[in-house]
Design a protein around this nucleic acid. Structure first.
Length: 416
RNA sequence: GGGCGAGUUGCAGAGCGGUCAAAUGCACCUGACUGUAAAUCAGGCGACUUCGGUCUUCGGUGGUUCAAAUCCAUCCUCGCCCA
């Protein structure tokens, strides 16, 4: 894997980002010759990105760290259309205001990973609404549409899948690949962008852009995709008990983010260290070899490094400290989710089920009851034996009540 | 515009007048075993509950019936075929 001359491709391949590339040798030569500009498009369907997008962000990060210019493209325009790839159903359409709000929020997630500015290798944020919103239909059809044949579009996986499964595919969505292809051409024109990266599910869309570039402006553009990252057991990344693993701290606390990585499967540790941290490869090779319970050390490092990248060193250390106190010493960490109960209410007593629900450890009283009857609920590390227990201020230990659902989910109750 | 078919609890997908809060699979949660892992096994998985029940759900709305996810009408959405 060291046959590449460019640091970019050496790094990307060694760390496991390569899935497919339109022309590895040519891209290698170009990257070795000088800085190139590469971009990745991001959907604006939610107000925060989640771990699923992290591989993409890391690719941009490496692009920058190996001396090139990354462009993060916000899909302000394409989100109005909806990418049919990998979906059976049409995406819910968002209005302009929602999309604008999402973009504003998403942008902040890039800040810790990339250096922005106007320098040669400084990262840029671009919104494709800037050129897509103003398109004139007939003109666009004649200039761009004529380069696409329906024959080829029907052969696209995303299209075929819908048709084969007899799921609807609207003309609106059908246009998505054309717009994404056009993005590439436009970015090349505006920012001299010659490389598009993305997840393997974007391959079809990316290739369309590469070909469109050749037809419209006779330039060679490159496409590069990374594998779809799944856990060793085949599950898609990014789900926990609480839902998606968001990158925004408001959506998912640094502590929970840390825990997500801490709970990585054994078989994934090495791969994830390469993909999601900046650690040197020889160091990763050493950690990867750990076996049995020792691999937990590698997981702690993975969790600490990934959390540091996103939330900063201080927040990561705090999360690690809380995890250590909570799990290794059976104590109470200050970073756990906390709810406040008015003193009078606590003095009067609250049923445990209600309390578990309020601490968001259960969705309903019924679920709390089930949790208790299953033996999974704990109050100050003591198993709650029945759902009639009433919690009063007598349960306070140093002003805190610790509630647990299972071994991993904890919350604190304080008076306030 | 015409003909046919479909819309069920997170997803997939049974049910086709009472025994249906609704089979089964996946996902998810908890327990046991462990290493905050995986695998395996066990339990759970609409809400409320004085644990006897009560209430809300099967695209929407109105009917028929003692009784409807199941029958009828109508509307909406989607698919297939024809125009």
């Amino acid at each position: 894997m060291t046959q590449f001359r460019s640091e970019l491709l050496q790094t990307l391949t060694a760390r496991g980002y390569l899935h497919q590339c339109t022309d590895l040798a040519a891209l290698d030569a170009k990257a070795a010759a000088g800085p190139i500009t590469g971009y990745i498009g991001f959907d604006a369907t939610a107000d925060s990105l989640h771990v699923g997008s992290l591989v993409q962000i890391m690719m941009l990060r490496w692009l920058q760290r190996t001396g090139h210019k990354p462009v993060a493209l916000m899909g302000g325009g394409t989100t109005k259309v909806g990418d049919p790839s990998g979906r059976d159903e049409t995406r819910r359409l968002l209005d302009d205001a929602a999309i604008a709000a999402n973009i504003a929020s998403i942008q902040r997630s890039f800040m810790p990973f990339l250096t922005f500015g106007d320098g040669v290798t400084d990262a840029r944020l671009v919104n494709n609404a800037d050129w897509l919103d103003g398109l004139r239909y007939i003109e666009f059809l004649r200039d761009v549409g004529r380069h696409f044949t329906i024959n080829r579009m029907l052969a696209m996986d995303s299209v075929k899948m819908r048709l084969e499964r007899e799921q609807p595919l609207t003309f609106l969505e059908f246009n998505y690949m054309i717009l994404q292809g056009y993005d590439f051409v436009e970015l090349h024109k505006r920012h001299n962008c010659t490389l598009q990266l993305g997840g393997s599910d974007q391959w079809g869309n990316i290739v369309q852009g590469v070909e469109l570039g050749r037809r419209m402006s006779e330039t060679e553009l490159f496409g590069f995709t990374c594998p779809l990252i799944t856990t060793a057991s085949g599950a898609k990344m990014g789900k926990t008990a609480e839902g998606a693993v968001w990158l925004k701290a408001e959506r998912l606390s640094p502590y929970n983010y840390y825990q997500y990585w801490r709970n990585t499967e054994d078989a994934d540790v090495g791969r994830f260290l390469k993909l999601f941290t900046d650690m040197p490869l020889d160091e990763i090779a050493r950690l990867e070899k750990l076996e049995g319970s020792e691999i937990n050390e590698a997981k702690k490092i993975l969790a600490l490094e990934t959390t540091t990248l996103l939330h900063g060193r201080d927040a990561a250390n705090e999360a690690a400290e809380t995890a250590k106190r909570t799990f290794e010493q059976g104590g109470v960490g200050g970073d756990l989710p906390t709810i406040l109960i008015p003193p009078a209410e606590l003095a009067a007593g609250i049923n445990v089920c209600a309390l578990l629900t309020r601490a968001k450890l259960a969705d309903s009283n019924g679920e709390a009851r089930r949790l208790i009857s299953g033996g999974g609920a704990k109050l100050n590390d003591q198993k709650i034996e029945n759902d009639k227990v009433v919690v009063t201020d007598q349960a306070l230990v140093d002003g805190i009540i610790k509630l647990s659902a299972g071994k991993k989910r904890h919350a604190l109750v304080k008076v306030g």
